[in-house]
Write a protein that binds this DNA or RNA. Structure first.
Lengths: 230, 230
DNA sequence: GATCGATGGATTGTTGACAATCGATTGTAG
DNA sequence: CTACAATCGATTGTCAACAATCCATCGATC
């Protein structure tokens, strides 16, 4: 046997899949603003397909939580309020902590190397002052973190969360933050894993998420899901 | 203003939603055995609807991971191999630990009460010797655990995992286990939360999941996702 | 003047038929 | 008897038209 996979399976992605990707990206990057109504007929015409595949695509996005469907009313791009954003980051904390703990438990040195490479890549673009690229490198780091855990389910759940995260980042585009701090937080996460210190890892991730939240929801302070008593 | 929600919104569930639920339940309870091919035409005829809504329903299940779609071949009920089951329980560990930690962090005494009620309910059915009911009560406990955390995203991810869990339980229907142990494990989880001890909580959940794994995959021992070196 | 009811426009929800694709079967040549 | 090629059946993928539903606007009545 020569190479294990001489050729990649010819990828005949379904049209629904293609449309899903395009729509998801449009939402993610803010090209479709939150709250916008999506007309099936209009979109179908724009994509040059029938309403069948398009409907399938939008239904996927509904299930991903990026689109809200009001029965017999229409489809609307999901709007993320403060509550939603908090929940998003809580969920990310859960997934990414679990991923990190898994890596630690399995002594995955290759994962550590990949994570170091990821934050060093952040460092590089940070020094170049490419803020947009830094954002991508940031997301890449988290992607590497979760994919290194080798859990398809965690990874799939995380992907959805990362799309929403990108929505948030798009929303506060322009806000400045010290790139060095940003890189440092990720280094701290990676090195906690390298050191096999689960507690330090969870602390690092929780603080990292809190940091992000503070920039996204400047007003609200602690207040978990409850806030029943003032 | 009288009651905050005098009446619940009239629930006109879409036909696709109804079909999705029915199919999901059939898969969950083993009425549709893993590996079975699902014919759109046949199913549509059985449900008495067109292929449109039915297709939408199956696509949802595909995205939930309960059904595998081979392009131009057909739909097949997902089969859970050992690897999948391990991943499933790893993902559950992640979600449920996070849920528990959230409850602890927010000092949600109501959640503790709900959890105690849940395992006491287990205790009751265990004493009555109703094994099928005990299974349900078991799943209920975990449902309460995650829903108490008040995170829509964690809860949604968990629901999917619980359906797969039910598939597993259906598969090993008939295997006996000491009900007292089963209840005790859940009590330990609940009391770790009551005590606010995050570490004890995670330990309890991890052992609980390991216990379940041991019964589901008797052959395989540790071996995470790797098993590279014997 | 305010409330209730009817009409209109637009949207989704649903349907049945058509086309493209794939795997298995069968037939044929070597 | 084996290997290859064409055919066949079945399935999904796709489409355009139809029906049902909802919201907004407008008019009538109290």
């Amino acid at each position: 046997m020569s190479s294990p996979q001489p050729f990649q399976r010819v990828n005949r992605e379904s049209t629904a899949g293609l449309i899903t990707r395009q729509l998801r990206e449009a939402i993610m990057l803010g090209r479709l603003e939150p709250g916008t109504q999506l007309s099936e007929a209009t979109l179908a015409a724009e994509f040059g397909v029938s309403r069948g595949p398009l409907r399938e695509a939008t239904q996927r996005l509904v299930q991903e939580g990026l689109v809200r469907a009001e029965p017999n009313r229409g489809l609307f791009v999901k709007e993320l309020d403060e509550h939603e954003i908090r929940d998003l980051y809580a969920a990310r904390t859960a997934i990414e902590s679990a991923a990190g703990r898994t890596i630690i438990r399995q002594h995955r040195h290759d994962a550590v190397l990949a994570l170091r490479a990821a934050y060093e890549s952040m460092q590089t673009v940070a020094e170049q002052g490419a803020l947009a690229e830094l954002s991508n490198a940031d997301l890449d780091f988290h992607e590497v973190l979760v994919s290194s855990a080798g859990s398809p389910r965690l990874q799939r759940m995380h992907q959805t969360l990362m799309v929403e995260t990108r929505m948030c980042l798009t929303a506060l585009q322009g806000t400045y933050r010290d790139p060095e701090d940003q890189v440092a937080e990720h280094r701290r996460i990676a090195e906690a894993i390298a050191a096999g210190d689960s507690e330090a890892l969870v602390d690092a991730i929780e603080e990292h998420m809190q940091e992000a939240l503070d920039r996204l929801v400047p007003g609200g302070r602690n207040a978990g899901a409850s806030a029943r008593v003032p």
